[in-house]
Design a protein around this nucleic acid. Structure first.
Length: 424
DNA sequence: TCTGGGGTCCTAGGACCC
DNA sequence: TCTGGGGTCCTAGGACCC
């Protein structure tokens, strides 16, 4: 059996831990740049506010005092997520962290009769020790556990834990689940399903295998098997991320090349730092630029360019330098850019980097690596000041988040000493 | 006026091999 | 006019997830 543990309205719940006056109120958390709604309390869901709604469409609720909006505070959410995950990891032999607010528990070796109590204890412990409410769904496959967790969240009677441990329960749950709510059925597949007469998860599960094979590809077949109780999703994902992306929308559109160079340098430096944090190095550096796709009246341009490094690297100098080379191949004047980003890919462990026969820069590379280590040491010691004390001259001076709208951000209640002292 | 960020996997088709 | 058969690997783009 698998258990899916899902934090309820996670970002909102995190804000409420440190702002208990928000309990019972309609609350939303906004994406970067205060752009869209990315988390909603039950009360704001009841007001009809949908996921990913642009904030300006619901801002009048805030002005009327009916809704509280928070800018996103990922340092806070990441820290509380770590605390939840460590409680889960202590409770069972193996967990798979699926996202910032979800994890699968592997329950093999635990007697089935003990599972409900184990789960109820976890719900209570996480609520008490971290302050975040969670829902747990238990079932024979991950796809079914997801469905069970929806029921655990939706119906108060379950008190946070829904067991799908008999075939009768499985069939009933599937018959009550619209096909588009099934994990793995997205925007494109759902209309295809309904056009073939499939409305519920049960309709799909009861089609013959041959029919599913003929009409869908591998992912569809896996989902079908999982709904029927056969484990078909792979055990675990790779330890090491295969790509790392840093990108942001800008508060205002930018058409100045020098300003864009500063932004792209910052994004590339962030990627390099993330690589070093996980002891990785990358061979590919991709830069992309977006104009504002919502402005029909402006010329549109969505270029990207990838450069391949001869030898995998993670030094700030090399990643930034390569990103800027790629940037120069795609930048065109005369456009108003709204977003840019850097992606590093073809990632390998930094202790097994394949050297090149034609690498004449080995000494230089070693120096750059040492320099990056020093920058990391100094910058992490100065953490909390909000800016990188040591940076390349092509990076922007000042706070990293400058130029990104964040009008309603809470404090770093759990990770910044200054904020912790002030709050207390 | 205002519209997020960061990932994974799969597939088709091209390049290449013998 | 007419030009084989059977593979692998890589990549871009689509679909999906939170």
């Amino acid at each position: 059996m698998f258990a899916l543990v899902d934090c309820n309205n996670f970002f909102v719940s995190c804000e409420r831990v440190f702002q208990p006056q928000l309990e019972g109120k309609a609350v939303v958390v906004l994406s970067n740049n205060d752009g869209c709604v990315v988390a909603r309390s039950n009360e704001s869901k009841a007001m009809g506010i949908k996921m990913c709604t642009p904030f300006y469409q619901v801002k009048h609720f805030v002005d009327e005092g009916r809704l509280h909006a928070c800018s996103s505070n990922y340092a806070l959410y990441g820290d509380l997520s770590d605390r939840v995950m460590s409680l889960l990891a202590d409770a069972v032999p193996k967990i798979e962290i699926y996202s910032i607010d979800e994890a699968f528990l592997h329950l093999d070796g635990i007697q089935e009769g003990q599972i409900p109590q184990l789960c109820r204890d976890l719900v209570e412990k996480i609520r008490k020790w971290v302050g975040v409410p969670v829902s747990i769904g238990v079932a024979p496959t991950k796809t079914l556990a997801k469905i069970a967790s929806h029921f655990a969240k939706k119906y108060k009677g379950y008190r946070g834990v829904c067991m799908m441990d008999t075939d009768g329960k499985r069939l009933k749950a599937l018959s009550m689940t619209p096909i588009e709510d099934v994990w793995g059925i997205g925007r494109r597949l759902a209309p295809q399903m309904t056009s073939k007469g499939i409305q519920t998860a049960l309709d799909f599960a009861q089609r013959p295998r041959e029919w599913v094979e003929a009409n869908f590809h591998v992912p569809g077949l896996r989902t079908w098997a999982e709904l029927n109780g056969t484990v078909s999703l792979e055990e675990e994902r790779a330890e090491r991320r295969q790509s790392i992306c840093t990108s942001r929308s800008f508060a205002d559109m930018i058409d100045d090349e020098k300003e864009l160079v500063l932004r792209v340098s910052d994004f590339a430096a962030m990627c390099a730092r993330k690589l070093r944090e996980e002891h990785s190095a990358a061979c590919d550096v991709t830069v992309f630029l977006y104009t504002n796709r919502f402005r029909d009246d402006l010329k549109q341009y969505f270029p990207s360019a990838t450069l391949r490094l001869e030898v995998a690297a993670n030094s700030t100098q090399e990643i930034v330098g390569t990103a800027l080379k790629a940037f120069r191949t795609i930048f065109r004047p005369g456009y108003k850019y709204k977003k840019a980003g850097v992606i590093v890919g073809s990632i390998v462990p930094d202790d097994c980097v394949q050297v090149s026969l034609f690498d004449y820069d080995e000494e230089l590379r070693k120096k750059q690596d040492r320099l990056s280590m020093v920058m990391d040491a100094v910058n992490s010691a100065a953490e909390g000041s909000g800016s990188s004390l040591l940076r390349l001259a092509t990076q922007r001076p000042g706070h990293y988040a400058d130029g990104i709208r964040s009008d309603f951000c809470s404090r770093l209640y759990s990770t910044s000493l200054d904020d912790i002292i002030e709050v207390h």
